[in-house]
């Protein structure tokens, strides 16, 4: 085949391949791009990657889609995620889930976000009890399997028996949550990254203080080189879980 022709497929091939995957880490995205460069007989370079992603972004936003770079608020890793910029109907879920399963997902989303006092977490027993109330013919085993699938697709994550929103929900559904679930005065902005906090919530260890930030932002703020371990608001010493700080922290320049 004529190589000058193959070159023309570079962007569309990338878009199609990414659409099939929907979420990839930075490294996986680069690997995909370099494979596609190979197939299209275009020379790959790390420098061209950034420009290429910009080009893709410019193409997709014309039709209200995007491939956005998002940082995980739990460990700081970067991901690229296929985003529907107008999302009121949960179309992203409809490839892999049935209508009933989408209703269940919506319910889980509401329950997690209503659990303001629990730092936007929902215990798995509460989750199963609430889903059973929806009166679908799902057994406990079915529900557990479905929750596993939500986790695998990175809509929700589970930690110590509690569910919270994972990176795809944050990337895709933040607008939906702001519009439909939380009131204006319920939104908490993280003072470090300035994004709203919907998951990975850390609260000041002083019970009288309501200073919140993301887990990853906490690790940055109170990490190795930090100047003070005191809460910026109440000035009390912050009792930090050492695992958060010692956890692998993504180098901020590394994207």
């Amino acid at each position: 085949m004529d190589s000058s022709q193959n070159r023309n497929y570079l962007n569309s091939l990338f878009i199609q391949a990414f659409m099939a995957k929907k979420i990839l880490s930075i490294e996986e995205t680069k690997t995909l791009y370099s494979k596609i460069c190979d197939a299209c007989e275009v020379i790959y370079s790390d420098n061209s990657f950034e420009n290429f992603m910009k080009e893709i972004h410019n193409t997709l936003i014309k039709i209200d889609f995007d491939i956005k770079r998002i940082q995980s608020k739990s460990d700081g890793h970067f991901f690229y995620i296929w985003i529907n910029l107008i999302n009121d109907d949960f179309t992203q879920l409809s490839t892999q889930y049935t209508q009933n399963e989408i209703v269940i997902f919506k319910r889980i989303l509401e329950l997690i976000m209503e659990n303001y006092s629990e730092n936007y977490q929902l215990s798995s027993t509460d989750a199963i009890r609430e889903i059973s109330k929806l009166k679908y013919s799902f057994t406990k085993k079915d529900i557990e399997a479905l929750l596993k699938r939500f986790q695998k697709d990175r809509w929700i994550m589970e930690k110590e028996g509690k569910y919270s929103l994972d990176i795809r929900s944050i990337a895709e559904l933040s607008e939906y949550i702001k519009k439909n679930i939380l009131n204006e005065d319920e939104l908490i902005e993280c003072p470090i990254c300035l994004d709203y906090i919907f998951s990975n919530v850390e609260r000041c260890s002083n019970p009288d203080c309501d200073y919140y930030l993301h887990t990853y932002c906490l690790a940055i703020k109170f990490g190795k080189n930090s100047y003070s371990k005191r809460c910026p608001k109440c000035k009390e010493l912050w009792d930090i879980d050492e695992n958060i700080i010692s956890g692998e922290i993504e180098d901020e320049d590394n994207y």
Partner: peptide, 18 residues
């Protein structure tokens, strides 16, 4: 309908199960 030749798509669009 996809207009990208199949030989270019091979191994890129599908995951293993697909």
């Amino acid at each position: 309908r996809n207009l990208i030749p199949g030989n270019l798509r091979k191994g890129l669009i599908f995951n293993k199960e697909d």
